[in-house]
């Protein structure tokens, strides 16, 4: 199971890398979103995907899954949420101000 998830997250990373290296700004942002999915999957996998009950004490199970990675992922999800929201707004503002989403046209700062 771990191997499968690792491969999946590897696929996500390669897709994200491809998107981030592209010329359009919105594709870059999509790439960063996919990248964060890959990281979250990886954290979950590295905590171990052993069988066990959900980490709720009411379950009365003999073993539970590791609760720590889940807390880490939860924290990291909200952070990447915030960053992505800021990034999208920034991209929108740049698009209205500069008039392009082509990253090649956004190079240098000679016009000021």
């Amino acid at each position: 199971m771990e191997t499968l998830i690792i491969i999946l997250s590897g696929v996500l990373v390669s897709v994200a890398t491809y998107l981030i290296l592209s010329r359009s700004l919105i594709r870059v942002i999509l790439g960063t979103a996919i990248l964060s999915h890959a990281a979250h999957l990886l954290i979950m996998t590295m905590g171990g995907l052993k069988d066990g009950s959900v980490p709720l004490l009411g379950e009365e199970a003999s073993s539970y899954t590791d609760a720590l990675p889940q807390a880490l992922i939860l924290t990291s999800i909200v952070i990447s949420f915030a960053v992505t929201a800021l990034f999208l707004v920034l991209a929108y503002r740049t698009y209205t101000e500069v008039g392009t989403d082509n990253l090649h046209a956004l190079r240098g700062f000679k016009d000021e």
């Binding site: 981030i20 920034l90 740049t94 956004l106 700062f109």
Partner: peptide, 17 residues
């Protein structure tokens, strides 16, 4: 300002990475 927006895009992207 235009230059701030341009540079902040790169700064955010590199730091997300």
């Amino acid at each position: 300002r235009k230059v701030q927006l341009k540079e902040s895009i790169k700064y955010v992207a590199i730091n997300v990475l």
